[in-house]
C-alpha cells in the first residue's frame, strides 16, 4: 500500500509540474467565468445557463486532464524508457498501475473541487439558492472520471501512440453517452428482421455507461434519484473502473521493457 501511495504522490507532483495541467485548469476557469457572458443572452434564465455551462466545463476539463495524465504519463514513460528506472526498484507492476491510477484520480478530484468552488462562487454572486443536486452532479462527474481514467490507462497500454490512445478514449467517452441508442438500434433491427439482440446486449454491458451517471443533464427531472439507485450507480462505477484497472495490470504484467 505504501508503494502505491508513493507512486500516486509522484504522479501528482509530476502532473503539477506539467504545463498542460495549468493550461487546462486555466482554460476551464475562463470558460466558467465566460458563462456569465452567455447568461446575459439568456433572458430570465441566467443562473441556469451559468450552472449548465459551468458543470459542462468542469466535466470536459476533468475528462481532458485525466486522459492527458493517463496517456502522457504512462505511455510517455514507456516510450522514453524511464519506466525501467521505476521497475528496477522493488515495485510490483500492479502497484505501479494502481499508484498511477490513484495519482490521476487525486489530481482529477482536486481539479473538480477547485472548478466547482469557482462555479459555486459565481452562482452565489448571481443570487442562486443552493440545491443539493449540485453536489450530486459534481460527485457523478467524478465517477465518470473514475471510469474514463481507468479506461485511458488500459488503452494507453494497448495502443502504440498517444494520438491513437487519446482518440480511442474520446471515442469511448462518446459511446458511453449513447449506450441507450443500442436499445433503439436493436428495436430498429428487429423490425427489419435482423436478430443480433445478444450481441448488442453484450456490447451494451461491456461499454461504459455514462448516461445514467450524467445527472447534470437531467438535473431538472422531477423524480430525483433515490438512495438505492445512487448506491448501485456508485457500485457500478467502482466495479467497472476496477475491471479496467486490473485489465491494465494484466496487460502491463505481460509487457517486456
Amino acid at each position: 500500500m505504501k508503494k502505491i501511495f508513493a507512486i500516486a504522490e509522484y504522479t501528482v507532483k509530476e502532473n503539477i509540474r506539467h504545463k498542460v495541467f495549468y493550461t487546462i485548469l486555466l482554460f476551464a476557469l475562463v470558460i466558467i467565468i465566460s458563462s456569465v457572458l452567455f447568461s446575459m443572452l439568456s433572458g430570465e434564465e441566467e443562473t441556469r445557463v451559468i450552472l449548465d455551462i459551468g458543470l459542462g466545463a468542469i466535466e470536459i476539463f476533468a475528462f481532458l486532464s485525466a486522459i492527458f495524465a493517463a496517456v502522457g504519463l504512462v505511455l510517455g514513460e514507456m516510450e522514453n524508457k524511464s519506466i525501467s528506472l521505476i521497475l528496477t526498484r522493488p515495485v510490483r507492476r500492479f502497484e505501479y498501475i494502481w499508484g498511477r491510477y490513484s495519482g490521476i484520480l487525486s489530481i482529477s478530484l482536486f481539479n473538480i473541487l477547485l472548478m466547482s468552488s469557482g462555479l459555486l462562487f459565481l452562482l452565489f454572486i448571481k443570487g442562486w439558492s443552493f440545491d443539493f443536486r449540485f453536489l450530486l452532479a459534481v460527485t457523478f462527474i467524478f465517477l465518470k472520471v473514475v471510469i474514463i481514467s481507468a479506461l485511458a490507462i488500459l488503452i494507453s497500454l494497448i495502443s502504440t501512440s498517444p494520438i491513437s490512445s487519446i482518440s480511442m478514449t474520446f471515442f469511448l467517452w462518446v459511446l458511453g453517452h449513447v449506450t441507450d441508442h443500442l436499445k433503439y438500434l436493436n428495436h430498429v433491427l428487429l423490425e427489419e428482421g435482423v436478430k443480433i439482440t445478444i450481441f448488442l446486449k453484450a456490447i451494451y454491458y461491456l461499454l461504459p455507461n455514462f448516461q445514467y451517471l450524467n445527472i447534470k443533464d437531467y438535473i431538472g427531472y422531477p423524480n430525483p434519484l433515490v438512495g438505492t439507485t445512487i448506491f448501485w450507480q456508485v457500485a457500478y462505477s467502482l466495479a467497472y473502473a476496477s475491471v479496467a484497472t486490473w485489465l491494465s495490470v494484466l496487460v502491463f504484467s505481460r509487457k517486456e521493457f
Binding site: 449513447v178 433503439y184 454491458y205 445514467y212 434519484l225 439507485t229
Partner: peptide, 23 residues
C-alpha cells in the same frame, strides 16, 4: 468484478428509467 458491474448496471436500469428522449 465484471459480473458485479453488469449486475449493478442492471439494478440501476431496473430502478430508474432514463428520463431523456433519444437524441
Amino acid at each position: 468484478l465484471l459480473g458485479l458491474s453488469i449486475f449493478a448496471q442492471y439494478q440501476v436500469e431496473k430502478r430508474f428509467e432514463f428520463p431523456l428522449p433519444s437524441i
